[in-house]
Each structure stands twice: as C-alpha cells, then as structure tokens.
Design a protein around this nucleic acid. Structure first.
Length: 837
RNA sequence: GCGAGAGUGGCGGAAUUGGCAGACGCACCAGACUUAGGAUCUGGCACCUUAGGGUAUAGGGGUUCAAGUCCCCUCUCUCGCACCA
C-alpha cells in the first residue's frame, strides 16, 4: 500500500518497505536532471581527479567492472562530500580486434557493434548509480578522438620518436595478419590453428627506449603506487650496467662488439656466441661450414618465440669456421652461433666465459670448448676439468694479468677503466626495454597517417589533411588479411610531396596508444583546437587516484607514463607522471575460480540489480574484501548485504515519528545510555572516515556502520524524550556514512528524515572528539602473559592504583599463591602483566 | 631458478603502533512470532575440557613481561620475470 501524499506531492509517511528499483530510478533521474556530477574547474577548491581504467565495450558489464567502478565511486563521492572538486570521467577503449571478429561472425560492421555495445553498457553503468560526469564521455574510435592522436603521431614522427623498422612478428599465413603474442596458442593461430611463423615485417615503432632512464628513475617518485607494480616496471625496463667490448676478427679488419656486465671475466672468454640473426653470421661462415650453419639458422628461425624462450630448450649451436681474438689475452676464440643468444638484447653477441656463466658452461661441455678459470672462490681451487657447473660467486681474480689478486667485484670498475683507456671497449648502460611496435594489420584501429610513395618514400600526411578517416565501406570476410588494405578508395591517394600516385599506409595503431593519453583528453574532451587544452590539463592533472586491474602493471601503465612524458616534451602539458596514486584491485572469484562462461560461474550484474538493486550489488562488492584482494563472490553474502539495508530502512521507519522534531543532542543533558550511544556514533564516524580516507578499507568501514546499527537497535530507551536527539543523530550519521557506498539508498533516507537539500552536498560528518572520550576503560590483567581478569576503571587511572587493583583482583589471587611476584608491567590504559615465578 | 606477496574458525574476512585473537558478515544450531517461512526477532557458535582451565593464527626455532604482528629455518599457495650476457 502506498502512503498518502501531502500537499506538495510529498508523502506524509515513508514507505514501510524498501523497494530498491523505485529509489534508484528516482535518484538516477534526479542526478541526470541536475547534472550533479559535472566537473567545472574551480581554483577556489581543491581538485581531485579520480579515474578508473576505462572498459573495452565488449558487450556488457561484468562483475569485475562492477567492483572496479564501485570502488572508484566510493572515493569520488567521499571526496565530493569532503568538499573536493572532483573530476570523475568515463569513456570507452573502443578500438580493437573483438569488434572485427564480431563483424566477421555477424556479417556486420565493427562500428555498429561497438557503438551498440557502448550504448548498452552506458545504460548499465547508469543503472549502477556511478557518479560520472557524462558530458566528458569519450570513445577512442570517435574521429574527434583519434584525429588528435594522428596529430600526436606526426609530431612524434618529426621528432624521431615514431619510426619504421623491420622487426620479427608472429604471422599467421592463413589469416594473413600479425598476431599478438597472446593470440598465439602453442605455436598455432588461435582462430584457424595454422602454425604461426616468424616473419620480418616493416613495422612502425615508438622510441620508448629513449625514455628508459627517465621511466626508471621516476618509478622512485611514485610513492603512491604498489611496490610490486613498480618492481615489475623496473624489471621490465631492465637496466644493466656493463661494457661494450670489441673482439677483433682473426685476420680481418673488423670486429665483433659484445655487451657484458661481467667484464671482470674477460680473461676467461674462450669463445664467442652470436645470435642466429646476427648480421655477421653468414659473412663469418667458411665454405665448409656453410651448409651446417644455414641449416641451423633455418631451424632457429622456424622455432617460434614461445618455444625459443622456453626453459627446457636445449642449448645448441654451430661453429662458423671463423675466429676472433680475445683483446686482452690474445687467445684465439672460435665463433659459434648459439640458439640462446638473442638478437634484440645487447649487441646480439656474447663473449663466452664457460667457467663463470652457466649457459656458456653447458655450451662448452657440449661442444668441447676450452675453459679458463679467472675467479677463484676463497678457500677452494677450481679445476676446469673437474667443474660440474659454472662458478658465479665472488672471489679473487686469477689468470688475469695485472688484475690478479683483486676482488672480482672491485675489478669490474678497474677493468672497465682499463678497456676505455686502451680503446678496447667502453662503459655502457643497456636496457631490456625494447621499442614499442605499434603497427597492426587490422581495420578497427587508428590509421597511421602516412603515405608510401614510390618516389619519395614514407611521407607524412600534412596536418591540414588530417584526419585520415577510417573508411566505413570495408568488407569483413575474415580472409585476405587487413580489410583496410582492400579499400581502394582509401589506399589510393596522391603523394603530398610530388603529386604522383601513392599508397596510403593501411597499418593501424595498437589500441594501447589510445589508452595512453585518454586521461589527459578527459580534462578537455571537447577541445577543438588541439589534442589538449593546456590550461585545463594543468587544472586537473595529475590523476590523484587511478584504479584498475593488476594485469596492466607493465603494458598500459608503462605506455601511459611514456606518452605523458612525450606529450610534455612536445609542449602539450607540464606533467611528468600521470598517476599519483594507483590502486590495483583484485579479481572477482566464484567457487574458487575467475568468473568465466566455460566455468559456468558467472554472475550477471543485470540479474543482480534487478533482484536486489544496485546499492546491494555495490555494498556487497565493497564489503566482502578489501579492494586490493581478490573478492570471493557469495550469493548468500549478497543476501546479507540486502538484509542489512532492509534493517536500516526499517530502523528509520520505526524511529521516524519519534525523532522527527528532535534537535541536536545537548551533551550535558544525556542519560548514561544516551551518552554511550553518542560515543558509539562519534567513534564510528572517526573510524569510517579513517578507513575510507587513509586505507580504502571499505569492508571495515561498512562493518563499523553495521555495528552502529546494531547498537542503535539495542538501545533500549530510544523513545524516551531525553534520548530522541541522540537517536536522531545516530540514525542520521548511519545514513550519511553510508552515502558513498549506497548513494540512492542514503539520499532517499536523508530526504525521509526531512532534509531539503541533497545528502551529498551536506558535507561529510565530523566527529566530536569530546564525545568519543571514554568514561571508563577496560584494563586487562595478565599473569605471565595469560589473560586472567579485567578491570573497569576510570581512563585517568594512575599506575600505582592499577597495579594495586590488579594484584588484589580476586580472579588473579589463585595464580599468585605459592609463587613470588617478580615484576609487574603496566601499559597505560591497556593492561597489567604480573610476572611470577 | 630469481623476485614479490600470502597462509588466521565451516566460509569471506577483522586485529592500523608488539598489548584482550576471531570485529562485521555468511553458514549452521536453538528458541520466539506464525496457517506457513527461504520474512523478522532473541540467543548460541574456534577447538579440547574433569568446567578449575587448557590449546590455538601453515610447521619448527628465537627475541620479549607480552608475538598473528619482529628475527631465523622449513613447507604450501598465488602472482610476476624467466636463457637478458
């Protein structure tokens, strides 16, 4: 039954029963109408930029999104209530392969599929009551977004930060396309099961290596990031310090350059290992070794990347027939090709020191190559003939000429100086990080804005001719490679330089490019004179809190840092690091496994919202675990959260008539019970504030509110006239503290409590320190560290009194009989420990 | 192999600075209300117990008056990297 309406359409009594759908629809439309979450720059207020990683519009929201965005929304609403000017935007990472696959499957168009998904998912996010500034929404597949990216690309090209190079890629001969590493399953194409080949292709790359040092150094400034993410990035960048050393070819003029971090073992280098792809490989091969070497190179090339880097791959190699010379010992070193030497690390050549490197050791044993010990561990004499593994520890230098007797660690620097002085080598820093290959032979991406001219070579599309718009009339058959390459009207063009017929580049950019700067674009999403409005970017950046999955620890989060630095250097912004604080939330697990269709353990957010409402869905996903941990989904747990909201609703319903007219509590006029409840209220405000603000531990914050609700319910004399003010304050506090977690629910009850304005603008509740002070405290009494009794005493009890009371306590007495008290430890306000023996 | 993190009741999880282990919730048990209960309310709920207590935070040792928390060793799990010269 509906409650009767008052004169202004307002119900006279609140609904007895909590109906989530009614409440949620009401407030969602209110927020939309009021544009409640619009972010406007305001120098008078402190800004707070809160961002969750934007989703790929795959079709519908899953529970991982619900969790991610609920966490973000709590922080956004909390900060807003605290008075911050909050920017909380949302958008779509909208280019990518699945759209193309769906188009092939449904004989549709990637754009149609993508925009339909966006429309649907936007609706789902709105149903969750997330407080986004929807006016800033962007989709990376919008021309208005990607055209600016093309402009950035061209500027990077001019600066030498974007360049074309030949690199090895995974190639499916049937699909005629490049595959990402993760699309290769057991060496076969994930779609057609053909054997994936390694292919050398001309690819566009970004020179991220130029920023390697800065990207590494600045990880030490990111104090708001989880340590493990920083560690992963540092490992990925992989800086190592060592030397480049030239080994002259025997009888030849040229030399082979190696990179080593172990120049201290140079005197023990007895042979040379080159990568199979090393440019000198064939040149160095003698006639009699030719067939063997060619067979080896072919074999290595055929082995795919995954197998090649597998742990159990046996070390193999082949002798080229040529020799080089160890520049410090003049020993003749046979030159081998070895399958474990990587062309894309260092120089693709390794000086082999079998006595002090395990890989070289295994290789030398297999091919019967000489061993020379140059580091002796203390108290032991290594005999090359008897060694079963390389010695990689510390020791004293031997067989190393003038360096004999030095500690090998100390010798590193000395030898490096020596090599530089002699012109044999030089100190270098080498990075594991490689340039970022961004070419994709796919349609649904941002076209790389260049033109290939037979006469002029690669020619940038003039800025005035931008954007290069992705043509809509491509055919999606799943065969014949990149659909874009078959759109004649797109491909055929004239060279902007010479005017002759030319072909447009049909590679599109990796989708990680779009996600590398979307957070900057959010600051001025509609700016139409460039990618970024510098003033707006300066007003909002950096992102104060970024939230997303750990799976992007290296890829996205490294690319975004790189891109921000590039944009800074191009003059678009003044930001060094885009994300001040990073929260990596855990996965949503059910029945011990990640939710997946094949496991049949998927929870559908729509069904959940329909049955319980968004507030319950949010509450449970926040309550069940702290954000950085995996969340174990439990249907019964959801019931529990729903029950809690119903309990709060009923509590308000029950007390409303009595407290309607109540004012603020007058501390001096309270009963003892009233005082206790008020203390609980203010302690709860304190705890919730701290848990949310300092730790993002929403689970304990919610638990604290639950405790307070239990306390209000247990509060016996709540309708007594002297207590109604306390009850009102208590109930209102519950509602206000719940606002960031269950915003519709809280707004509704706030209105029912008779407030005219919206709750979110009423400010975050402040606790009264005075009210939190205990009147009496419990002091624990231990005997030899074991709990024996408890004392209830005044908070200001003196040490002597506490000791005396403890020793006199009847429950403690039996434990003091027949023994002597050796010591009494007193921790003020906490415990007395009587040590006996 | 290297690096990081974790291991607490039947379950998810609390314990923020070394000071009452198990908050809060779920499940379960008993009771009340009820035609009924998958609603609601009340109470119970780590384990053992001779009812005094005793034992418990993966296992073992240590520091301390006091250890889930600090130190050492071992085991298990998760994640990341993995021939990086």
């Amino acid at each position: 039954m509906r409650a009767p309406l008052g004169a202004h359409g307002r119900r006279l009594y609140m609904e007895e029963k909590y109906v989530p759908s009614a409440v949620e629809e009401k407030w969602q439309s209110y927020w939309a109408k009021q544009n409640s979450f619009e972010a406007v720059e305001d120098p008078a207020r402190k800004k707070y930029y809160l961002l969750e990683m934007f989703p790929y519009p795959s079709g519908k929201i899953h529970m991982g999104h619900v969790r991610n965005y609920s966490i973000g929304d709590v922080i956004a609403r909390f900060k807003r209530m605290q008075g911050y000017n909050v920017l909380h935007p949302m958008g779509w990472d909208a280019f990518g392969m699945p759209a193309e696959n769906a188009a092939i499957q449904h004989k549709s168009h990637p754009a149609k599929w993508t925009y339909e998904n966006i429309a649907y998912m936007r609706g789902q996010l709105k149903t969750l009551g997330l407080s986004y500034d929807w006016d800033r929404e962007l989709a990376t597949c919008d021309v208005d977004y990607y055209k600016w990216e093309q402009r950035i690309f061209l500027e990077m090209y001019r600066q030498g930060l974007a360049y074309k190079k030949v690199s090895a890629v995974n190639w499916c001969p049937k699909c005629e396309t490049v595959l990402a590493n993760e699309q290769v399953e057991d060496g076969c194409c994930w779609r057609c099961d053909s054997i994936v080949q390694q292919k050398e292709l001309e690819q566009w790359s970004f020179r991220i290596t130029k920023y390697a040092q800065e990207l590494l150094d600045d990880t030490y400034k990111l104090t708001g990031w989880p340590e493990r993410v920083l560690t992963m990035q540092r490992n990925w960048i992989g800086r190592s310090v060592g030397c480049e050393i030239d080994f002259p070819l025997q009888g030849g003029l040229s030399s082979i350059k190696v990179f080593t971090t172990r120049q201290d073992t140079l005197f023990g280098a007895t042979f040379m290992s080159l990568a199979a792809e090393h440019p000198l490989a064939l040149e160095l091969t003698t006639a009699e070794q030719r067939s063997e070497v060619e067979a080896f190179i072919e074999k290595v090339r055929k082995t795919d990347r995954i197998k090649r880097s597998a742990d159990d791959l046996e070390k193999e190699g082949v002798f080229t027939g040529s020799y080089c010379v160890n520049p410090v010992t003049n020993v003749k070193m046979p030159i081998f090709l070895a399958n474990f030497v990587l062309m894309d690390y260092g120089t693709g050549a390794v000086m082999a020191v079998p006595t002090h490197d395990q890989r070289d050791f295994e290789f030398a044993r297999k091919y019967d190559l000489p061993l020379q010990v140059v580091i002796q561990p203390e108290g032991e004499t290594l005999d090359p003939a008897a060694m079963t593994e390389a010695f990689t520890g510390e020791g004293l230098m031997v067989n190393s000429g003038r360096f004999d007797g030095m500690g090998n660690s100390d010798a590193k620097e000395t030898i490096a100086d020596f090599l530089e002085k002699e012109g044999i080598g030089k100190k270098t820093v080498n990075f594991r990080l490689r340039d970022w290959g961004i070419s994709r032979q796919r349609y649904w991406g941002n076209p790389i804005p260049v033109i290939n001219c037979d006469l002029c070579g690669v020619v940038a599309v003039p800025t005035d001719d931008l954007p290069v718009v992705l043509p809509m009339d491509a055919a999606f058959t799943g065969e014949g490679g990149n659909p874009l390459a078959r759109v004649e009207s797109f491909v055929n063009c004239t060279c902007p330089q010479c005017g002759e017929a030319a072909r447009r580049e049909t590679d599109t950019m990796d989708t990680f490019v779009q996600s590398s700067w979307y957070f900057l674009r959010y600051c001025s999403p509609k700016f139409n004179s460039g990618p970024l409005d510098r003033e707006k970017v300066e007003a909002w950046m950096p992102v104060d809190q970024y939230i997303g999955g750990i799976e992007h620890a290296v890829l996205h989060l490294l690319y975004a840092r790189f891109f921000t630095k590039v944009l800074r250097d191009l003059g678009y912004c003044n930001v060094d690091e885009p994300f001040s604080n990073l929260l990596t939330q855990g996965m949503v697990i059910k029945d011990g496994a990640k939710m997946s269709k094949s496991k049949g353990n998927v929870v559908d957010p729509n069904a959940l919202i329909e049955r319980y409402g968004a507030d319950t869905a949010r509450l449970f996903s926040l309550f069940a675990a702290p954000p950085e941990k995996d969340l174990d989904w439990s249907d019964q747990g959801v019931d529990g959260s729903y029950r809690f909201l119903n309990r709060v609703w009923r509590l308000v319903y029950d007390v409303l008539p009595a407290i309607k007219e109540a004012g603020a509590p007058v501390p001096g006029a309270l009963s003892a019970e009233g005082k206790n409840l008020r203390r609980a209220v203010h302690k709860t405000i304190k705890k919730v504030t701290e848990d949310v603000e300092e730790r993002f531990h929403f689970n304990t914050a919610i638990a604290a509110v639950m405790e307070l609700v239990n306390a209000i319910q247990a509060f016996g004399a709540r309708n007594a006239p002297e207590n109604v003010a306390v009850v009102r304050e208590a109930v209102e506090s519950v509602v206000r503290l719940l606002a960031p977690f269950v915003p519709h629910f809280a707004e509704e009850l706030w209105a029912e409590l008779g407030h005219e304005g919206v709750l979110e603008q009423s400010g975050w509740p402040q606790y009264d320190v005075e009210a939190t002070v205990d009147e009496e405290i419990t002091v624990v009494i231990q005997v030899n560290g074991k709990l024996r009794s408890k004392l209830t005493v005044a908070p200001d009890i003196q040490e002597a009194a506490a000791r005396e009371a403890a020793l006199a306590d009847p429950k403690v007495q039996p434990f003091l009989e027949g023994v002597s008290v050796r010591k009494v430890v007193y921790v003020p306000g906490k415990l007395v420990n009587i040590v006996v023996g």
